[in-house]
Design a binder for these strands. Structure first.
Lengths: 338, 338
DNA sequence: TCGGTCAAGTGTTACGTATAACGCCTCCCG
DNA sequence: CGGGAGGCGTTATACGTAACACTTGACCGA
């Protein structure tokens, strides 16, 4: 905790102030009304300040039986999306006297089997995003209060869930493209087994399939610019009528699609329309700016933390899905005449 | 810690295995060689498994006097750079049985005055990046072992520092552009008071200024695509001879510069060359791909954590600056004839 | 036979905090 | 003038763990 020379304890403060350790705890804990006089209280605070006293969290946690610390499990930090989720969660946490410890789940960090292996902190609860089922049961086995982000409400082993309304976002994208007149559509899907991506595919099939005369081709790519580039290039080079629009599972894939389109000597949106999903900074950095679905990552994190607080306090409060909004920019236009 | 029904303690395990609590601690702590027989040890492990025992970290921390948890203070998570730093630090930490708690320093998270206010975890040390001096003294006041990232080695109040060799990166950029023949250069600088940005400006002035017949104009912009766009657009629209190259303090600013150049009807690199610094995913997403300086964020985080471990163990080990590498892509070319 | 060594444990304590339970003094009211 | 009621504290205890000091019995060499 401290180094060499030990840190002052509440007992040291007590001695300096000429009171008992209990009085120090009372005063510094803010529960001294009617128990300790104001003058004594001030003397204690003064002594604490002079000694540079900071309470030993480990001791407090042990005594209290909780830590006011929660774990946030995210798949990766390679886009700013989960950084936003963290920020939102941490903000609400801080407002309620909680801290948030981050655990990026995939390979790269030690024995990734179980988040708790490398999260040293003692925890009061867990917010987990996009977990595989086995990792999920591992967490559940720990009996900690759990909130799942963007997960199947029915398949989450009874954990509380907080979801973005991805279904509605995908619906907006589909309607937008259909209204523009697109009929041959390529779905550039994330090659990740996760509920949130399954939802995209399902809704897309439903919406596009409902319109007579449409075709929907789905290809999968790892979530990276390079991966999307090669996948999209192959799909677009195939013989047969070329799709007039590409719907991407997220903005990063869309950036890859941009490069594929450009490499084939085509132009966006004149020859092909492209859409994304996330609305990262990337979406406005590329040219033309990307038509995409804005997800409010921070709000997502806030709602996740609020849900966990509700669980911790025994409340059963539950809001609906978080609304998302299509943002139309320059990457979509009516298809050129055939 | 746990919820309602209390979690099993080492004493429960002891009772189930028919041994003393001390024996459980010995066995599970891995220090039972020659103290407990193998058969008994196995019985203890079995009991622990059946009860689902996990040690109470708060109690352990209290007993041991340390937490094997460190705090990583970063300015923001809006780019993947500091995500990389975190990942690297967390990897080395995990390998040494440590955990890392993240604290994004600026506004947005509760009472941001002091990192410890919202980082609930009890800490063994701190790795801090780009701190203002006042926050730094606040941390130092806590007497915790401290490592500074990308900070003035002389101004860090005696804390250990780990730095990227930004000076060399900027030198490479300058040499590259000068060799291509550029003489009128615009420096799009980050509007942030931080040592790492001061270094950029200083080195640039030295390198460009050393060549006769060159001009260097510096303008400042907040680190965002929008901010860079307006700043660059203003600078490029000014009367007088237009710069033939823009050196940006980081990739995000470069993305803004791209938009400004394009908005003025100019082309990259034909009319104007642009360089960045960071080599984010963004650098290859934009068109043309950005000539920039690759910073190895994960290595940076690893070295930071290694330095902190050294401090914690009393070693005084210290490597040199971390090398960086210019990556030449399509955004730079010789200036067109005047 | 006997002191000594070693394996295989057990009993006890301390870490620093928060709080329940208790004590004392003074003041006020019947 | 007696006693109940605050006001102002203190004493004692427990949280779960790790580690130190100690005990017990078995074995062994001289």
């Amino acid at each position: 905790m401290a180094q060499g020379s030990t840190r002052p304890t509440s007992r040291d403060v007590a001695q300096a102030a000429g009171v008992s350790q209990a009085a120090v705890s009372l005063v510094l804990g803010g529960k001294w009304r009617g128990r300790v006089s104001e003058t004594t209280a001030e003397r204690v605070r003064q002594a604490a300040r002079e000694l540079g006293y900071r309470p030993n969290l480990a001791a407090r946690n042990l005594r209290l039986g909780h830590t006011r610390t929660v774990l946030l499990v995210v798949p990766a930090l390679t886009t700013e999306f989960f950084a936003g989720v963290y920020t939102g969660a941490a903000r609400i946490a801080a407002q309620n006297g909680f801290g948030v410890v981050l655990y990026p789940s995939p390979e790269g960090i030690g024995p990734a089997r179980n988040p708790f292996a490398s999260a040293q902190a003692a925890l009061d609860g867990v917010i987990a995003s996009s977990m595989a089922a086995d990792a999920l049961t591992a967490i559940r086995g720990d009996q900690l209060p759990l909130v799942m982000l963007d997960s199947d409400p029915n398949g989450s082993l009874g954990a509380a869930t907080v979801n973005l309304d991805i279904t509605d976002g995908v619906r907006q994208v589909a309607e937008h493209l259909l209204t523009l007149g697109h009929r041959r559509i390529l779905h550039l899907a994330a090659d990740v087994a996760s509920w949130t991506f399954e939802v995209r595919a399902r809704e897309l099939a439903a919406r596009i399939g409902a319109v007579p005369g449409t075709s929907l081709l789905t290809i999968r790519a790892p979530i990276s610019i390079e991966g999307a580039l090669t996948a999209a290039e192959t799909a677009l080079s195939a013989k047969g009528p070329r799709p007039t629009a590409i719907i991407c599972d997220d903005d990063k894939l869309a950036a890859g699609a941009y490069k594929a389109v450009r490499r084939l000597g085509l132009r966006i949106p004149d020859d092909i329309s492209v859409t994304g999903l996330d609305d990262l900074a990337l979406a406005t950095a590329i040219d033309p700016e990307l038509t995409t679905v804005r997800l409010d990552a921070e709000l997502f994190g806030e709602r996740g933390m609020q849900a966990l607080l509700a669980v911790l306090e025994g409340r059963e409060l539950e809001g609906g899905d978080i609304p998302v909004q299509l943002v139309v920019r320059g990457s979509t236009a009516p298809p050129s005449a055939p």
